[in-house]
């Protein structure tokens, strides 16, 4: 409170005063591409664009997922897995509310995903069953992420439509990267330095 008036009341009053007579409905033209059909080429494009970010992409059938996960992990790796992951993982450590320090001592994480966006090569997690809370896909240095081909959509609007805004989401496009030093792209600053995507089906 300042001079007995709350900042909230002051700001809202100043907004109304500033807009004044200009207040009017604005039509938003929505003639950009909002809905696109998924074809076989869409899944190929997804694989290509994920790989463009220097993430590793492995394609396989749905039956081969467990073997591919096992092959992706270093021998004797300790790997955190979220509740509800439908695949068996060797060296699995269940996420029993592990502390950040504990997560930092593990070698990797295996999760599923909610949606894959072909045009941008993006994987979106919404941190429900099979994906886990946000910290587990952040602190370990290796993220193995399984995306089913039927989860791939064409563009950003298609993904937005499928996501629940009240859930936390993490959009991942390649491994962590920076271009802050002379615009040289360096993979791996704080997030997982290795992102391996298993595209199944």
């Amino acid at each position: 409170m300042r001079d007995g008036v709350s900042a909230r009341d002051d700001i809202l009053r100043d907004v109304r005063r500033a807009v004044g007579e200009a207040r009017r409905p604005v039509d938003v033209p929505r003639d950009y591409r909002r809905e696109r059909v998924v074809e076989a080429a869409t899944v190929d494009l997804f694989a290509e664009r994920v790989a463009d970010y220097r993430a590793e992409v492995v394609r396989c059938s749905l039956d081969e997922v467990e073997a591919r996960i096992a092959a992706a992990l270093p021998p004797h790796a300790q790997v955190v897995v979220p509740d509800g992951l439908p695949w068996a993982v060797p060296g699995a450590v269940p996420d029993d509310r592990l502390t950040p320090a504990h997560l930092d001592g593990l070698d990797g994480v295996v999760t599923g995903a909610t949606v894959g966006i072909a045009e941008t090569g993006t994987i979106v997690l919404s941190h429900g069953p099979g994906e886990g809370r946000r910290a587990i896909t952040l602190v370990p240095d290796l993220h193995v992420c399984v995306v089913r081909a039927d989860q791939v959509v064409a563009g950003v609007p298609d993904a937005i439509r499928l996501l629940d805004p009240t859930r936390p989401t993490t959009w991942i496009s390649g491994p962590s990267a920076t271009s802050d030093i002379e615009l040289d792209r360096v993979e791996g600053v704080h997030g997982p330095r290795t992102l391996l995507v298993i595209l199944a089906g």
């Binding site: 664009r49 993006t122 946000r134 805004p165 936390p168 997030g191």
Partner: peptide, 29 residues
């Protein structure tokens, strides 16, 4: 905006990470 911003900003199809959150998520964050 998630199409306009990354392409205009870093010149990438999408930036490596985008986080969204709606207040407090029990047990997460």
């Amino acid at each position: 905006f998630l199409q306009l911003l990354p392409r205009s900003s870093t010149g990438e199809r999408m930036n490596p990470y985008t986080s969204t959150w709606a207040g407090v998520q029990p047990g997460d964050g």
